[in-house]
Design a protein around this nucleic acid. Structure first.
Lengths: 225, 225
DNA sequence: GCTTCTCTTCAGGTATTCTTCAGGTTCTCA
DNA sequence: TGAGAACCTGAAGAATACCTGAAGAGAAGC
């Protein structure tokens, strides 16, 4: 678990770092906004603790920049107590949580842990249709809790169907995307593979997610069958 | 999700490829413009990442060629930082987005994802007449909530009638559009199919949406009957 | 080098869909 | 009112599309 602290008060940064390291985290510190930004881009942190008042670019700017770049690492913002900076503003710029200075160390750790838990379930852009899920990053397919083994070709086919779940896709499109435009073989290959898929993702579960659209192609039921 | 990277700096191409594969994409790389062009024609990619500075033909040329060939695959162009090449120029030649080098990997992935979402085929409009709907993307017909199974020919016929809902269309036009100008058979086929349609979309619902216009052809009631 | 897995082709079987045809019904107009 | 045209419909064979098991080639793993 790696944490980045962006905080210009050196002794505070040092104290927090020591404490968090004692808790078992790996900690990097940055004393300016630009340095922090740079580090955040370099490394995939699990949480960033970001002070608002910083020399150079302030915390809001750092946060907004990261979000604009598509970086959704959980950010915990530190606001001055009765601060001129509003908590709402912190959340608006894309922070996930905030903490008013001065804060108790225990609370800080608790908040960081919470963010980590939350951040865990965040991104993975999983393709879903009902209880049928497919995670391209993990290269894994599930029907509910059951993991289903698919060959590369089957995986690609299901991925394509899932991408257009609920819509019908033509056999031509399927061949173009799954086999490539240059495929010269028997188009019957699609039927064969749809058969394989049904045998793996439908039949054992008494479902019927891959529907035949006669004369057109196939359609994956949006609700997974 | 298949991505093509056209980039001549081998180590950059390799790094990006590794990263994208970890995200679950299938990645092909081409080190020259001509190779890239060739691959783009072979396979229906979901996104192409295209460097501008390439040996052989440059990125603009590759992009322009693809567009000229009617290939509208989403293209993300990589431009040199304060480059001589303008971003506007990239967009002009038909790129969908651009990114200045050097770029953060996270940003690259975010942009690619955005392009994929955007590049999702736009759904043709759903045809409606009263409670009778026909969704070309889904390739499905409904009367209210009830799904009605239509054969390809029936579907095509209803689609045509729906497009001119409220107007009468001649049998000649119907044959021309649904069967093709080259149809040589018995024009009675239209009557037969209108019969099939009525049996499916009207009779079970006590409706009468497909009206006969004697001496002319047919008219689908604009309110669905 | 051998086994196992994956991909692809092929061919037979089945079910659906298309088309034609013939006879019946309805409508129009003289 | 009756003749003719236009339309409707059921039946049936032809054509097409789809499914599936089998088997060989090739790749990957041991």
């Amino acid at each position: 678990m790696r944490i980045l602290i962006i905080e210009d008060e050196e002794h505070l940064a040092a104290a927090v770092t020591r404490g968090l390291e004692a808790e078992g985290f790996t900690v990097d510190t940055a004393l300016t906004g630009t340095d922090g930004l740079w580090r955040a881009r370099e490394h995939a942190y699990d949480v960033i603790v970001l002070d608002i008042l910083l020399p150079g670019s302030n915390g809001f700017q750092v946060c907004a920049t990261l979000r604009a770049e598509g970086n959704w690492v959980p950010i915990l913002m530190l606001t001055a107590k009765n601060g001129e900076f509003d908590e709402a503003e912190a959340l608006d710029t894309g922070a996930d949580d905030f903490l008013s200075k001065p804060f108790s160390f225990v609370v800080l750790v608790a908040r960081i842990r919470a963010l980590m838990r939350r951040g865990r379930r965040e991104r993975p852009p999983i393709l879903v249709a009902g209880d049928l899920t497919l995670d391209p990053a993990e290269h894994r397919c599930r029907r509910g809790q059951t993991i289903i083994d698919l060959t590369p070709r089957e995986f690609h086919l299901l991925e394509y169907l899932l991408r257009f779940a609920g819509e019908s896709v033509s056999k031509r499109d399927i061949i173009g995307h799954v086999w490539g435009e240059g495929f010269e073989g028997d188009p019957n290959i699609v039927e064969v593979y749809v058969g394989y898929l049904r045998r793996k993702i439908d039949r054992p579960f008494g479902k019927n997610s891959v529907e035949t659209v006669r004369g057109i192609g196939y359609r994956l039921a949006a609700d997974g069958g």
